[in-house]
Design a protein around this nucleic acid. Sequence first.
DNA 1: CGTGAACCGGAATTCCGATTCCGCTTAGAA
DNA 2: TTCTAAGCGGAATCGGAATTCCGGTTCACG
Lengths: 184, 184
Amino acid sequence: MTAPTRPLRADARRNREAILAAAGELFGEQGDEAQIEEVAARAGLGVGTVYRHFADKQALLAAIVGRRFEAATELARSVDELTDAGEAFERLLYGYLESVCADSAFRRALLGPEEPRWESIAAQKEAFREVVSRIVQRAVDAAVLRADFGVDDFVRVTRGAMANMPDDADWRRHVELQLEGIRP
Amino acid sequence: MTAPTRPLRADARRNREAILAAAGELFGEQGDEAQIEEVAARAGLGVGTVYRHFADKQALLAAIVGRRFEAATELARSVDELTDAGEAFERLLYGYLESVCADSAFRRALLGPEEPRWESIAAQKEAFREVVSRIVQRAVDAAVLRADFGVDDFVRVTRGAMANMPDDADWRRHVELQLEGIRP
DNA sequence: CGTGAACCGGAATTCCGATTCCGCTTAGAA
DNA sequence: TTCTAAGCGGAATCGGAATTCCGGTTCACG
């Protein structure tokens, strides 16, 4: 598949990071409305350079969102170490939602419908889902969550909270209400 | 304010309705992505005619969304007639959500942040909110809802459900879970 | 150093949907 | 029936953002 690509030249690698950093900030603030030209400017580069590293805007967006998923998966893995299933679940829930709250591109990617648009990060999504699934199952077994609660419900609850972002007080209140409803 | 506008010519009135009908369908299916040219085509008219009736795309969108709000308010008023406060609340909740589910432009207008964009329908929104407020209050007084439940929570819960649309099974399940959480 | 493959910058181009413009048509008052 | 203000159609224009292109620059290997 991926031909034996020789490593990037040092400056190119640096620039690539600068682009990802700039895009991370801008997409985080403005979602996909942020413009490539602005990303390039914030990275201190020309648009041409952005396009040398990413085929198109969508690819850049996907790179960012993919990273967020990876971070979320890492969070999930780390809370899964906790002995207390209930605590693991709550930490996952809030930790995940906080990361979503902080990035509107991530948020929109999650709230929007599955589109062919996000094919490229299907693997990351799946990885996250798997760990979440495990944590939810543990919480159910520990009778911290109602017996019929499943991963899909986790998705519903979190999407619900996202719909009340970015105001912090707002979504937290909504999560509290929901927590009342998903206990046994 | 509104100058003594003489009534529209018969054909113009008919066309205006055709445009609203076409736009209602298209925006309902595709949200604001639907194109004016398509609206005009479905109404069997030219784009110029659409612009003769509505200043711009946003105005047309607002006209549609405003109508949805009015319908929702009417629904709310009618369930407010019911004696049983609990039933009134549930009928409002589900009735409202069903109408939202059926129209993606309405949904997006509700899910998106308040923008100056929707100024023109502020009155309709406010009217709806007021009736909802009354119904929620009755439900709280009747101890059908937890004492600290307010209109804002109604907004949170419904936004939450919308985030899980348009799949029907999905949002209904989510509402059920939430209902568990908002009872006393 | 000397070279050339990799890179970079950013003006120019492409795309695409909203909006305008104006000559033609028609309802409906006289 | 006539006349004209109100309406209509849709090609042409505008605008704003993505993407391309290519002459000039820079790393890094010999």
